[in-house]
Amino acid sequence: MTSRTIMRLMVGFYILLFFGYLFGPLIMMGITAFNATSFPQVTPWEGFTTAWFVQLLEDDQMTDGLINSLWIGLGVVCLSVPIGLAAALMMTQIYERVRPYYYMVVVSPVLTPGVILGISTLVFWDRMGTAVNAEYESLFYNGMWLTIVGQSTFISAYCMLVFLARLARFDRTQEEAALDLGASHVQVFWKIMVPFLRPAIFSAAVLAFLTSFENYNTTVFTIQAESTLTTVLAGKVRMGTQPDLSALAVIIIAITLTGAILHEFLKQKERLKQIRQEKAAKEADQELAETMGL
């Protein structure tokens, strides 16, 4: 055996180890979702079943948590995307010398532990509620609302980062050209800025939703009497896991995979479109050269 083949074998082994480490638990979990044993395990294999999926759907606690999670995710998107966009636009407007400090301030929630964000949100709204003598049913003590607000404190900073990346590529002369042609600043925003930012708005929304959906640290404090999918799951795991959790994992993995594949497909389509356009531009160039007799 030459040293080259040894090298190759080692690289192969490493890759195997790497992917095993990444995907091993997921595959294992996926298998347990279909095993008929009442405890999530791969062996002994007691027969294929989809009963755990049925049990999952019939679990009211779980479905309630899921619905809450979806609503909270939606609320976080509606709150974080505009705040993140405003923060990013602000960054481009203020004096260059102030920018690092401003950046530090608006990014700090990302670096703050979620637990602290959760507790501080809870304390803040509780104090405010007490100060104005709010009723217990009011927004000040509403778990859903507090979770949306609490999560948005750091998720809007994520959104801002997405927008900043996109804005860095914005050509300011576009804005000036629109102004020069008579557009008001509001028109520049809606007709030039928003269309340019559209992909970033979409990415920020997806990011905000997913981050909200899987958040536990902040939510566990702010949700209070209500529950989300993550808090229900955490509660269940404490009692010992059942294969219906594996079933849930399989569903989430399936959705994620489908989304990723769809995204890749759309990106490919976009690439092909761009190539077509470039070709058309080149042809137009030639045509022009010919008509001008160059």
Partner: peptide, 30 residues
């Protein structure tokens, strides 16, 4: 946006997300 001038930029600053006709008509649209 209130002056009776129009500027042609060095990089032209055409709007890439609009068609040629939309670009030309932008000043009228606003």
């Amino acid at each position: 946006n209130k002056r009776q001038t129009a500027l042609i930029f060095q990089n032209l600053a055409l709007f890439p997300l609009m068609t040629v006709a939309e670009n030309i008509a932008f000043g009228l649209e606003v």
